[in-house]
Amino acid sequence: GSLMYASIFGNVSAIIQRLYSGTARYHTQMLRVREFIRFHQIPNPLRQRLEEYFQHAWSYTNGIDMNAVLKGFPECLQADICLHLNRSLLQHCKPFRGATKGCLRALAMKFKTTHAPPGDTLVHAGDLLTALYFISRGSIEILRGDVVVAILGKNDIFGEPLNLYARPGKSNGDVRALTYCDLHKIHRDDLLEVLDMYPEFSDHFWSSLEITFNLRDTNMIPGSPGSTELEGGFSRQRKRKLSFRRRTDKDTEQPGEVSALGPGRAGAGPSSRGRPGGPWGESPSSGPSSPESSEDEGPGRSSSPLRLVPFSSPRPPGEPPGGEPLMEDCEKSSDTCNPLSGAFSGVSNIFSFWGDSRGRQYQELPRCPAPTPSLLNIPLSSPGRRPRGDVESRLDALQRQLNRLETRLSADMATVLQLLQRQMTLVPPAYSAVTTPGPGPTSTSPLLPVSPLPTLTLDSLSQVSQFMACEELPPGAPELPQEGPTRRLSLPGQLGALTSQPLHRHGSDPGS
């Protein structure tokens, strides 16, 4: 009898404990919600809404976190579960008819179910419309201010047509639940991603989709105040780019002037030289400038040598048109050559190039014969006009050509200096018209024969001689050997007369 009593008592207590286990969990969670309300000092109306929603959600799901349970299964099984949970929507909604099984599984994985109690606001006026909503159960109302403009029910759709707008718009009203509602919502990016994977279904979906109420604000059109608020930074940046392009296009129409201050000032006329910023005076940081632009901040801005204009002085008759350009485009679109090309026009420029290279940067340069637009006047290309890779490749080509020119210049200078040193070592320090008596009659020769300089066969020296023939050397430049009979510069000019005159010897006659 005691054994029977113990078994009955144990079973009854276990049954009672299981009955009250759900209630215990409910009270535990309710205590957490109330502690949250007390800690954050939530006001009474919002506090009442929180408690009511918790009670309804507990009775609806029995305190089970559906998302946590669903995430515990593998992905393939999750797709089947989501397809079952959203079967009513996918079967009865017209846009989803005719979709393949794979497309429906992908869509079912992207849908999220939302449960809303009465009085809950789903979308506020001015919120971004980031999702498309399908009503599965219940009814909602749409308000503009305090005026109800629409009441939607089961199988209705609200949001915005995503295929017509590249960016999400703003809501033009509040969406509030009238009863307990079940909503299926899919985010904008998720829907577009699935439709991109199934393009054959995309056309059918957009053609058959009928949005019951379009929440997009109709005033959000390009150029409206609301649109400016939504895309303020983007609009200002776009206007700045367009104004920069218009100014650079105007600059290219004036090829007669070359400016070292950047493309923003290349198009300024002579009357605007004294102004601080020219056409860019209202925004000094709008356009890029070269490193020399920092010198323009000092006094005497109108007389600054940074602004270059072609000189009108005539060229000498024998002067060549100019050196070879550094870039391939210089032959086609440049009416002034790079300062480095002028360094190779003569030997005198070679000796004085490194010492006063900055001073020569603004000297007169030889002109190319074609009066085409200036290379320095070409505006900086924006990322939309020329690819970045093209600019980098041009810079690399320019750097390689500069290296080759520097190597060639160093070799030419070394060769010229070597020839000058050899000339100085071969010439005796001094010569006299009267020579010392020699031991015999073989001493009648006034000077030792001097062998002429070897013929220069280097390509670089031939180019130097060509430049010497075309360029007029300055007075202080050293002379180079030329073709024809060679003669030492330090010898007297009348050596031929010395050989014809008898030598005057000093000596005593033994017979006297």
Rank of each mutant, 00 (worst) to 15 (best):
P320R: 10
V464L: 11
G226E: 06
S443C: 09
G264Y: 13
A469C: 14
H504W: 06
L191S: 01
I211G: 03
E229N: 12
V148H: 08
S348D: 15
K170C: 12
V391C: 09
R385C: 05
V194F: 03
E141M: 05
I140H: 01
L461A: 12
Y431Q: 14
P446I: 06
S352M: 07
Y180D: 11
S243K: 05
Y431V: 12
S271K: 04
D182L: 11
F205W: 12
L405V: 15
A150K: 08
R137D: 13
G159E: 01
G173I: 01
G493N: 08
L417F: 07
T455W: 05
G346R: 11
L340A: 13
F244S: 10
T425V: 11
D396A: 10
V175D: 02
E406S: 04
F134P: 03
E231G: 06
A177C: 12
I135C: 07
E210P: 04
E392I: 03
I140P: 02
R367Q: 08
P446V: 11
R400V: 08
H504S: 05
S410L: 07
S352T: 14
G173W: 03
D251L: 12
G223H: 10
S304N: 03
A177T: 12
L376D: 09
S290P: 15
P199S: 04
M468G: 05
L129T: 02
Q494P: 13
N338T: 11
V434Y: 09
L183S: 01
C470I: 05
T435G: 11
P437E: 10
A260C: 13
A166L: 09
A497P: 09
S285N: 10
Q482Y: 06
S345F: 09
R236G: 12
P284A: 15
E471R: 10
V258F: 11
H204G: 08
R238N: 08
S345Q: 14
A411N: 04
P291Y: 15
A166V: 10
P263I: 13
L261F: 08
P502S: 11
S508F: 06
P452Q: 10
K154F: 03
G159C: 01
L398R: 02
Y362V: 08
G323V: 11
A397Y: 05
T407D: 09
T444K: 14
N338D: 13
K170L: 10
S348F: 05
T336Q: 08
T218K: 09
Y431W: 10
K332Q: 09
F351D: 01
L498Y: 09
L162H: 12
E324A: 11
L326G: 13
P263H: 13
E193Q: 07
T218W: 08
Q423V: 07
Q237L: 09
Q363W: 06
N214V: 03
Q421H: 13
S224E: 12
M220G: 08
F158T: 01
G232S: 09
P446A: 11
S445R: 08
Y180W: 05
R386E: 09
V147Q: 09
H184T: 06
E160W: 02
D127V: 01
E406W: 04
D509Y: 08
T435A: 08
L480T: 10
S285Q: 13
S243G: 10
Q254S: 13
Q401C: 15
P439W: 09
E160I: 01
Q418F: 13
L183I: 09
E392F: 01
P383Y: 15
R315M: 03
L365Q: 10
H504C: 06
M468E: 12
V391E: 13
Q466C: 12
P383V: 12
S382Q: 15
G256P: 14
G440Y: 12
P310G: 05
G126R: 02
E141D: 01
F351Q: 13
L340W: 15
M220C: 12
L461N: 05
L456Y: 09
S374Q: 14
T179L: 02
R400P: 01
L195N: 01
F467S: 04
D249C: 11
R404L: 04
P255V: 10
V149Q: 08
K185G: 07
